[in-house]
Design a binder for these strands. Structure first.
Lengths: 332, 332
DNA sequence: TTGTAGGCGTTATCAT
DNA sequence: ATGATAACGCCTACAA
């Protein structure tokens, strides 16, 4: 690989000059600039980004921390971020923090070690304090789908509880009383919030919470299947289900099919969704929409602003939206 | 950020010594090793990977080139690669080459500029020659879902044509003759191959190819919907469809639902699949399986072998597999 | 066992 | 307008 030195020699100038034409900094005579360009072409020269980063302690790179690569949800999230960064000419580094705080710390460290110019964190397990501490450092970052006090201006938030309540109320308004809940893993804050929405809706409508109507799963299809099976075993007479994720909803449908249950004839279904898997099911299921795509886009553009030292337009939290389809029937 | 120099000073040794304990190279007295470790702890020292890479021209990193982030297919691919690399303690850099050769070149360049220790390329548009040229360089790489002459030992291949033929034959054996084809974009080799499978099956069974039974789409849901609509407009009497991607299949189902067509009553469906979206549809659709997950895993482990200078076990190409479900009915 | 010093490919500060 | 030269943080002969 040709280095700046080779270019300098071939062009008969100093490395400093080459660097200047490279970065279009300072004044250079057109003649020499041309010579340098020619040399670069001839040697097929590409600046070494590592050396560059080392020298400037910046990298033309932004880092993204996610918790998984699996599933359309993260696909969509990454794709959206990538697109913005393409426009900004930034290289995107993605790092996965699995399910633990340690692992997220590691993911974050790697990215900061790489001297990213900015970060987008979809971090579920880092402590608020760590984040606040991170905010002392100078590299800008945005928190995706998270709310931490004192960092409001960096948070792209969503009202999960509100959304859950909206969904369950929809069911109640259609006459349902015995409503099952496919809940997400209790360790996750957002899962707890979605569950709280369920609780609130019931409470406000004076329906007692029956824990045996709730089953927890890992947000995935298989888990949804099992959770649904458990509940149905205990309560064959439920008239509706509220699913806290699309994948779990698919799992529930797997079971329904197996048991020849029809939706919404035998059971009504409402679910969270973000990537419209729910519209692939038959019948298309009514959902509350978690707009991860728009949120990711917002996070990206907000980060871009930060990196360009532009003032941050106020970040408003995203609101849930009910998408009525064909999976809820009204009970007389 | 503390640097090696700070550690050295605090521990009262030279930077070289610190480097030695860091890399566990050479002999060091236990006492000093401890002092160094203590110093590192105290300063919360983490070696700068950029500097390291610059010095060693390696990076403990592997690069992955894909064509998109969108959809479960790439999710699965990335997740699988990531998992292997986690085990190897390698950091994964992913770069997206959109739809052009130039863009793939760029993606590849970025990765090599970053001095990746190895590469996995799911590159659709790079020329064979470029790949062969790349093979002259010393950084090892594996080609995922691609076959290029002279690089056989680096190719993880799949018999797309074979798979397509298998699918269409299945339809024919069930008595179908008027079979539509939802084809992928003609620019893509694998899409062409999948279409060739269609042609071959027809030919071998003495059915004339009718171009108006074929419509091309971009492998996506919306495209599948439209393509299916076009064909159906021209030929309301088809009895079966062969879809070259899961997403297009979903799109076709969207249309069927809209037109109150029932599967397999009104029309039989067979599709390619890799991430079992097809099992979410009702009825579950029969597919030929493209095992991207296993292939990605294989690519990863093969690359690991290469990077560890282990001999490469022979790479056998993956075979298609028919997954019978409920979307094909036999015509009398 | 440990230290010295040069190099990796850039940028950036002085000079000139 | 251009050239020395010292960083950037680490590795690695070569010496001691």
């Amino acid at each position: 690989m040709a280095s700046i030195k080779d270019v300098a020699e071939l062009a008969g100038v100093s490395r400093a000059t080459v660097s200047r034409v490279l970065n279009e900094t300072g004044q250079i005579k057109e003649a020499t600039r041309d010579r340098v360009h020619a040399a670069m072409k001839k040697l097929n020269y590409r600046p070494n980004p590592l050396a560059r980063s080392l020298a400037t302690s910046s990298s033309n790179t932004v880092g993204l921390v996610v918790t998984s690569y699996r599933g359309s949800f993260f696909s969509e999230l990454m794709a959206e971020v990538q697109e913005e960064m393409d426009q900004q000419g930034k290289f995107l580094l993605v790092s996965r923090g699995k399910r633990s705080r340690e692992s997220e710390q590691l993911a974050l460290q790697r990215l900061t070690d790489m001297r990213c110019d900015g970060l987008i964190l979809h971090a579920r397990n880092l402590y608020d304090e760590e984040l606040i501490e991170l905010a002392q450092q100078e590299t800008p970052f945005i928190l995706l789908d998270r709310q931490v006090e004192g960092l409001e201006d960096r948070c792209i938030a969503f009202e999960h509880a509100e959304a859950g309540k909206l969904a369950v109320e929809h069911l109640i308004q259609h006459g349902h009383q015995k409503i099952a809940c496919l809940a997400g893993p209790r360790e996750r804050l957002t899962a707890r919030l979605r569950f709280q929405g369920y609780e609130q809706a019931l409470r406000e409508h004076h329906i007692d919470l029956d824990e045996s109507l709730v089953a927890e799963a890992d947000y995935d299809r298989q888990g949804g299947y099992q959770a649904m099976a458990e509940i149905l075993e205990r309560h064959p007479d439920i008239t509706a289900v509220y699913s806290c994720s699309e994948e779990m909803c698919v799992g529930a449908f797997d079971l329904f099919r197996e048991q020849n249950m029809t939706v919404p004839g035998d059971i009504s279904v409402i679910s969270f969704d973000s990537v419209s898997i729910c519209t692939m099911l038959t019948p298309a299921v009514t959902t509350v929409h978690f707009p991860i795509k728009e949120m990711a886009a917002k996070a990206s553009s907000a980060l871009s602003s930060l990196m360009n030292h532009q003032p941050l337009r106020k970040l408003d939290t995203f609101k849930p939206e009910l998408r009525q389809r064909e999976s809820v029937r009204t009970l007389k």
